[in-house]
Measured scan of single mutants.
Amino acid sequence: EVTIKANLIFANGSTQTAEFKGTFEKATSEAYAYADTLKKDNGEYTVDVADKGYTLNAKFAG
């Protein structure tokens, strides 16, 4: 089991951190699915991958 950390950075400057656990593939998929649920209210996002894929920095356009 691994933990994927998602740093969510919103256009207004606020941030949120979420963690997803499971296999690498499952946890990564859940992190992206969570970011997708936030698109409606926060706009499209881009992701910078860090820490060999164990940290995802998602920046929302607003």
Rank of each mutant, 00 (worst) to 15 (best):
E1A: 10
T17F: 11
L38N: 05
K39W: 04
V2A: 06
E30Q: 12
D48M: 12
Q16I: 15
L56V: 08
T23E: 09
G43T: 01
D36N: 10
A11R: 07
E25Q: 10
E19D: 07
K39V: 15
T37H: 10
K21R: 14
E25M: 09
T15R: 11
A31D: 02
L8C: 11
Y45V: 05
E19Q: 10
D48P: 00
A50I: 11
L38A: 09
A27Q: 00
L56C: 06
K26T: 12
I4H: 01
A58Q: 05
K40C: 12
V47W: 08
A6Y: 05
F24S: 04
V47D: 02
N42T: 01
E25D: 11
D36A: 07
D48Y: 12
E25W: 09
T17I: 12
N12Q: 05
K40M: 10
L38D: 00
K5L: 12
N12F: 05
K40G: 11
A27I: 03
F20L: 00
Y32M: 10
T15C: 14
A6W: 07
G62P: 07
L56D: 04
S14F: 13
Y54R: 06
T55P: 01
V2M: 06
N42K: 10
T3R: 07
A11F: 09
A35C: 15
N42G: 06
N57V: 12
L38V: 05
F60V: 02
T37Y: 12
L8R: 00
E19H: 12
A18K: 15
D48I: 14
N12L: 04
Q16H: 13
G13D: 04
V47L: 09
I4V: 10
D36H: 11
N7G: 01
T37V: 09
F20S: 00
K21E: 06
T55F: 04
V49T: 09
Y54I: 06
G62N: 08
D48A: 11
T15D: 04
D41P: 04
E30S: 09
G53P: 03
K52M: 14
Y34L: 08
S29H: 12
T46I: 11
A50V: 12
A6H: 01
G62K: 06
Y34N: 01
T28H: 06
E44K: 07
G22P: 00
K59I: 15
T28L: 14
N42M: 11
N57T: 14
A27Y: 01
T23C: 06
D41S: 11
N7Y: 13
N42R: 10
E19M: 13
N7I: 14
K52A: 14
I4K: 00
G43W: 03
T28K: 07
N7D: 02
Y45M: 05
A6L: 15
I4W: 00
F10H: 03
G53W: 01
Q16Y: 13
D36G: 04
E1L: 13
A50R: 12
A58K: 02
A6T: 10
F60Q: 04
K40I: 12
G53Y: 01
T37G: 12
T37D: 10
I9A: 06
N57D: 06
G53K: 01
E25N: 09
A33I: 08
Y54S: 05
F10G: 02
T55I: 08
Y34E: 02
T3L: 09
S29F: 13
G62Q: 08
S29M: 14
Y54E: 06
K40H: 12
G22C: 06
G43C: 05
K39T: 11
K52R: 13
L38S: 04
D48E: 15
A33S: 08
A58H: 08
E1C: 15
Y45G: 02
V2K: 04
L8Y: 15
A31Q: 00
K39D: 00
A11P: 14
K40W: 10
F20G: 00
